[in-house]
Amino acid sequence: MKSNQDARRDLWFKRSLMWLVTAATLVGYVVFLQLAFGLCTLARQVAAIGVLQLIVALTLLVITYGVRCWRVADYFPSETKGQFRRLLKLTLVHNLLNIMLPLRSGEASFPLLMRSEFGMPLSRATAALLFMRLLDLHALLAASGMGLVLGQGAASWAAALWLAFVLAPVPLFALKGSILRLAGRLPERLRVLVREVERGLPAGPAAFFRAWAATLINWCVKVVVLAWVLRLMDVAPFAASFGGALGGELSSVLPVHAPGGVGTYPAGIVAGALSFGAEASPASLAIIGKAAVNAHLLILISAFVGTGIAVLLVPQKRP
């Protein structure tokens, strides 16, 4: 039999494995960046943007985390009333874990944190998270579709398809009641679960439209800021900067996600920029590659800064 010390060591290793993998990945990433671009070269590209522009970009990115927190607070007004600072910390810790842990495993922290901080059932918090993630993905795909429509010369058929996709959540939400009524035929234990899932969805049209509006505002601000930063780092034309911002963010909401977004986020930026008109010459790819890495680092810094601010603001004892 294993001794208690061996059992504790095994338990610590299992709990720490993801963080060890993340730390090893980040160290390997830094070594790769030094060999591929040179850390000093990357730093000079960032310095060329200007301190004021960097502060503005960082501030706007941190503000988007506040919009996400408001969306959750509006989702659960009775449970989170008067607890915005604590909810902000929860939202930002969840965001940081989601960025740093591989394969979207950080998503599991949201229902666990909502249960520990606000006593919310896991099924209800999970249903709310799934709905919000669907809204996030829809907003990003709608933004990508807008670029494709412009690429078609704003043809009427392309614009009509794009508009239909943009408005698709409205009829789907309208069918929520009919879909949930079908659950009445399920066994009692499953009906209890469905009722918890229903409580995790917007209560009515007004709540739905507020969540939808907050999602659009959040992603519009974030994508525009990233596109602006990429343009400041000589990613041209602006459509390519816009496409790069979309590509990076799409890589962050898809299931295939490396620890810290290492590799996947910059690759998404490069792919998006090329898809939206950037040149594929070696010189252009070198510029886009360096800009993609620095934009990714800006996202990581904003996540750490936002979490640090939330930790400082939150009360130390639960009310």
Rank of each mutant, 00 (worst) to 15 (best):
I49A: 01
E279N: 14
V314P: 06
I217H: 03
V30R: 04
L182I: 12
G82W: 01
K81C: 05
A310Q: 07
R185S: 15
L175A: 15
K222Q: 14
G200S: 14
P102W: 00
S251G: 12
V197W: 12
A240I: 13
L193A: 15
S123W: 01
L226F: 15
P315H: 13
A168G: 09
A310G: 09
G261L: 06
T91H: 05
F208I: 14
V67E: 05
G82D: 06
L54Y: 00
I179N: 02
L167S: 10
L97T: 00
V51Q: 04
P319I: 14
F76Y: 11
A7C: 03
S16E: 00
F13K: 02
E79L: 14
R318G: 10
V21L: 02
F304P: 07
W19A: 00
Q316T: 13
L101M: 04
L61I: 08
A291S: 14
V224I: 15
R231K: 06
K222T: 15
L216Q: 13
S178W: 09
L17S: 06
V30G: 04
M114S: 07
L226R: 06
L201R: 11
R199T: 12
C69I: 04
L90Q: 09
L274H: 05
L88R: 01
M100S: 06
F304T: 11
F238V: 10
A7R: 10
S105N: 00
G177H: 13
R8Y: 04
L312N: 08
A236I: 10
S144P: 01
L298V: 14
S275E: 11
T215H: 07
R15C: 02
E198A: 15
G261I: 08
P319K: 10
R185E: 13
V56S: 01
L17D: 02
L161R: 11
A23I: 05
T59N: 02
P237E: 10
M1I: 03
Y65A: 11
A139R: 00
D10F: 02
P77F: 04
F131I: 08
G308I: 08
L130Q: 03
W219Y: 11
L61Q: 08
V223Q: 12
I55F: 09
Q53T: 02
A142Q: 03
V93F: 03
P315R: 14
L246N: 07
P171F: 09
A295M: 09
S78Q: 14
A143L: 15
S156H: 05
A203S: 14
L113Q: 00
V62E: 07
R44Q: 12
A139D: 03
L274P: 11
A7I: 10
A236G: 04
V314G: 08
G268S: 09
K317L: 13
I217L: 15
A47G: 08
T91D: 06
F131L: 14
L97N: 00
V170S: 11
F238K: 04
V225S: 13
A139G: 01
S241P: 12
S241R: 08
R15G: 04
E117I: 04
S284D: 14
A271I: 13
A127Q: 00
A164D: 07
N4A: 14
G177R: 13
